[in-house]
Structure formats: structure tokens, C-alpha cells
């Protein structure tokens, strides 16, 4: 018994440097891509790295970014939210339409309340009734889009007096030289990142996404946690609607269509796993910015906007393949 081989915990000790570099490369593959892409674009367009262009890109990316922050929380908690696109249509149409009817303050408050209510419905169905999040939010995607159309009677809405309302501040305003959408995106990202990484709440969400059963066995109220992630997601959508409605000062009734997929593409590009229990807001911010820069860079190089979709596809495939090297290694080490 004395000479029995003890299982040795930990990682292999030798070749740490080389292995470290390799794992850094594969873990940060997205970042490497990002930098390479920036360099290439800056060769082809002088404008690309100019301050004003960067600001433009970030501002354009901010709506997807704001939503992506919320969806990242849902994904870390182990679920998905496909209904954010329809919710964005809903909230934008609502706030724009109500602006002239009940005034901007009331419109904003009512819009936030109703958006959160939709989030609560999602959260109730997925958190407390424990239904499959993919199908529930798919169903909600369709149902909410229907609600928007019923509400608007299929008409587009807009704000009559576009110059004379402080509502313009959220989408068009500047504060200290920085566009307000960027500020909202940045503040939200920092806030949620702090919540996820520094608070007990964030820790619980990671636990629930990582292993729901073990989270419950640790006394974590899993159902509430899942429920709350959908409130966060809805809150972020409401913020995005504020920015979008204010920037456009009007809304088509399907304005958010397809956003759920762009948001997911950004999150995946950032490297947050869809399996839950891992990921970070930073990654998502980077992923969304990559999407934005691809779009912008390709436009500046004279390619039509839809080429970014093709490039995004290719990048997702490459990212997935890079991730594979990582996973092979992980599979080996957790084999029991």
C-alpha cells in the first residue's frame, strides 16, 4: 500500500513555455485574427484606423453590442435567447409610437416595463417551467413579431417633431465628445462584467450554467437565476431600443429582424461557448467589435455590405477549428 502510485493532480510540468505559448495562441486566436485583420484593412484604407472611423464603427456596433451583453449572460447561465430580435422590434416600435402620444418620459418607462415583462415571460417558461430555451425563445420570436404587427397594424411608425425632443439624445447625442450609444454600450458592458466577475450573483450564474445539478445541490436557487438572466437580457434589449429608436426617430415594424443571429455571431466570434458556464462580457465586446470592423473595413475597401456575412461565416469556421485544438487537449486531461 505504501508504494502505491498516487494520482498526481495538475498539469504536465515540462515544456511549460512552449505549451503556454501554443495554448495562448489557440485561446486568443480570435484576438490574433482581429489584429491581423486590422493590419490588413489599414493597409487598404488610410481612413480605417483614423479616430473618427473607429468611433463610427463602435457607434454602429453599439446596438448589437448592447443586446449581446445581455444575451451573453443568458448563455453563461446555460440557455439561449433567440427572441431578442423580435423584442428589439417590439420595444423600438413601442417607444417611438408612444413618444408622441404620452411624452418621451412615459414612453421610455412604459417601454422598459413592457420589455421586462416579456423577459419575465421568457424567464418564467425557461426558469420555472424548465422548458427548452431554444424552442421557447423561437416561439417567442414569432409571437412577439406578431404582437408588433398587430400593435402597429403593419404600419411603420415615426416621431413627428424630430428636432424638438430630448429623446434624440440617446441615439444622436454626444457627451464629452463621445457618442451616447457608445457610452451606454460601454457602461452596460462594464457594469455587467463587474456583476458577472465580482458578485455572488455572477458566480451563481456561472455555476448554474456550468452544472445545473451541482448548483442546485449547493443550495443555489437555479430557477431564479435562470429567470433573472432573461430579465437582464430584456433590459439590455430595452436599452438598445432606446438607442435605435432615438437614432432613427422612427421604426419599421421588423427593424430587429435577424439581430438575434448577428448578436449570436458576435458572441461566438468572441469565443464564449454556447454550452454555458464559461465566457465573459469582454469576449463578447471584442466579438461584436470584430463584426463591426469587418463590416466597416470591407465597406471602406469598396465591397458591398453583405460580404461581411461571408467573411463572418469563414471566421466562425476558422474559430471553431482553432478551438478544436484546445478541446482535444482538454479531452485528454479530463479523461477519467
Amino acid at each position: 500500500m505504501a508504494s502505491a502510485e498516487q494520482p498526481k493532480p495538475g498539469l504536465p510540468t515540462g515544456k511549460l513555455n512552449k505549451a503556454g505559448l501554443m495554448s495562448f495562441l489557440s485561446a486568443q486566436g480570435i484576438l490574433v485574427f482581429f489584429l491581423l485583420g486590422m493590419i490588413v484593412f489599414s493597409f487598404f484604407s488610410e481612413q480605417f484606423l483614423s479616430q473618427s472611423n473607429i468611433m463610427t464603427v463602435v457607434r454602429q456596433a453599439s446596438i448589437i453590442g448592447i443586446i449581446a451583453v445581455g444575451v451573453t449572460v443568458v448563455i453563461i447561465g446555460g440557455n439561449l435567447d433567440l427572441s431578442v430580435g423580435s423584442m428589439l422590434s417590439f420595444s423600438t416600435v413601442l417607444v417611438v409610437d408612444l413618444h408622441d402620444k404620452i411624452g418621451p418620459t412615459n414612453a421610455i418607462l412604459l417601454m422598459f416595463a413592457l420589455t421586462l415583462m416579456i423577459g419575465a415571460v421568457n424567464g418564467f417558461l425557461i426558469g420555472f417551467l424548465r422548458l427548452n430555451s431554444l424552442i421557447v425563445t423561437l416561439a417567442m420570436l414569432s409571437a412577439i413579431q406578431g404582437l408588433v404587427l398587430i400593435y402597429s397594424g403593419g404600419q411603420n411608425v415615426d416621431i413627428a417633431n424630430q428636432e424638438g425632443t430630448w429623446f434624440a439624445f440617446f441615439g444622436r447625442g454626444y457627451l464629452g465628445g463621445i457618442a451616447v450609444p457608445i457610452l451606454i454600450f460601454g457602461l452596460l458592458a462594464i457594469l455587467v462584467q463587474i456583476v458577472m466577475s465580482r458578485t455572488g450573483y455572477g458566480r451563481r450564474i456561472f455555476a448554474v450554467g456550468g452544472n445545473p445539478m451541482a448548483a442546485v445541490y449547493s443550495g443555489i436557487r437555479k430557477n431564479w437565476c435562470v429567470f433573472s438572466t432573461y430579465l437582464i437580457s430584456a433590459f439590455c434589449v430595452a436599452c438598445a431600443a432606446l438607442v435605435l429608436g432615438s437614432r432613427v426617430m422612427g421604426s419599421q415594424n421588423n427593424v430587429g429582424q435577424g439581430y438575434e443571429l448577428l448578436v449570436l455571431a458576435g458572441i461566438i466570434l468572441g469565443g464564449t461557448s454556447l454550452l454555458g458556464g464559461a465566457g465573459s462580457i469582454w469576449k463578447t465586446v471584442i466579438g461584436v467589435l470584430i463584426l463591426g470592423f469587418i463590416q466597416n473595413g470591407l465597406l471602406l475597401m469598396g465591397y458591398p455590405y453583405y460580404t461581411q456575412w461571408i467573411v463572418t461565416w469563414v471566421i466562425i469556421i476558422l474559430a471553431v477549428w482553432l478551438d478544436l485544438a484546445n478541446k482535444r487537449k482538454r479531452l485528454l486531461t479530463t479523461h477519467s
Binding site: I135, V136, L138, A139, S142, A143, I144, G146, I150
Partner: peptide, 12 residues
């Protein structure tokens, strides 16, 4: 539009 809502409700 109502079909969309009803469809979602049925699915859930």
C-alpha cells in the same frame, strides 16, 4: 400577424 402569435403560443 395573428398566425404568428398563435403559432408561438401553440409551440409553447
Amino acid at each position: 400577424f395573428y398566425v404568428l402569435v398563435i403559432l408561438g403560443a401553440i409551440l409553447i
